[in-house]
Nucleic acid binder design. Structure first.
Lengths: 210, 210
DNA sequence: AACCCACAGTAACATTTATCACAGATGGAA
DNA sequence: TTCCATCTGTGATAAATGTTACTGTGGGTT
């Protein structure tokens, strides 16, 4: 574990790593677990060691909208800022690939910010990059139509897993883009005709165009 | 000026106020000035003393999309986080009501974060609340249709100015919601029929329902 | 007054997206 | 194999939004 932290968070000082070891509690969660729910109070922040977590918004009718994924070596930005006042969560966090995480009590956040330069930098950078990512999401829904958003979504997925096969059903994709399955099926079919993808059951293969 | 800072940022310690006085440079900008442009490097952060600044995204074709407004007593969250590396701006900032601001060189940010507890808390809180605001924006475009978004937009405006008369042309509103004037006109007309607003030239009066 | 111009209303039409309805395909379980 | 559940494809239609085109209106200018 010590090893994992060191390699996953290479910028952390040795001292900080030790502090994390002492104060954090390692935990595992199965795919499907909801780690955080809108309106719920946040008591911990999370460092991801392994697996994948989906961060999304949910509306009253249960509609979803994907914001971003958290991967190993990353942390939940939102929880890191809800600091002192242990604010309510404005997002949902759901495990999409079995995770192993390090839970860190929120009350340590402020302390560490002052004591550990590398922690401070990590928090700021995490927050900055998440904000940026959300702004990109805003761009997509504000300026682009469904077909472009779908392409962007697929590309992001393949970037994130480093492979060209995306193992998701049309329904799942539709959920994350907050549209309907039929729309996704149709648009994917068009993409296939344009030679951008190859469609199989439960799997979409991205064909590099270049 | 000293007085303004004290009243506008009541949580700042006296010491911090002095430091700001010494290092910041007060500046005024006229309505219409673009303070920050997408892709531009950020060298300063800004405390708003007076006036109003609009923060929005812009696409390749010049389409706009409103994120939020900055009022007196607030600061530009984005610039505060682009800290050390003086990152590029991902947003546009435009003066919509003559402003008087305090410019603070970015290289002081990290230093102050460590030295001034009240500055640290202000930055964190600013960032948290802006993130939250942007998430609300995401909700609106992801889950709501144009008529609901328009109502929300009008309400936000009247809240922000504390009055019920919104002095904007349909065109301006359409720009900020990234739609067309015709659509805004249509929807406003429907709202008038439902008794929610009263329409005048260059002015929309919100009628309290209840 | 005569004119101009930004603003507002509205009809007609195009396009995009959502919804409904159903059929076929695939793979695993019995 | 047979059966069933899930996934996928597709047409028909509805609803929302965007686009084009034109009219009217009010205020300010000359």
């Amino acid at each position: 574990m010590q090893n994992s932290l060191k390699t996953l968070f290479p910028n952390f000082s040795g001292e900080l790593i030790n502090t994390i070891e002492e104060n954090g509690s390692p935990q595992d969660f199965k795919t499907g677990t909801v780690l955080m729910r809108t309106g719920q109070y946040i008591k911990n922040t999370i460092l991801i060691i392994e697996g994948k977590i989906k961060i999304f918004r949910e509306d009253e009718d249960g509609g979803e909208f994907l914001l971003y994924y958290l991967h190993p070596g990353q942390a939940c930005a939102i929880s890191m800022i809800c600091t002192a006042k242990s604010e309510k969560s404005q997002i949902m966090a759901k495990v999409v690939e079995d995770v192993s995480v390090m839970m860190i009590p929120l009350q340590l956040m402020d302390k560490w910010m002052m004591e550990h330069r590398t922690w401070y930098e990590f928090v700021i950078e995490t927050y900055r990059s998440r904000f940026e990512e959300v702004l990109e999401v805003v761009d997509n829904i504000a300026f682009r139509s469904m077909d472009e958003r779908l392409e962007f979504y697929l590309k992001r997925h393949s970037d994130s897993c480093g492979c060209n096969e995306i193992k998701l059903s049309h329904q799942e994709i539709a959920n994350e883009l907050n549209t309907s399955r039929e729309v996704v099926s149709r648009l994917l079919k068009k993409m296939e005709q344009r030679g951008l993808v190859k469609l199989n059951r439960n799997q979409i293969e991205l064909l590099k165009k270049n």
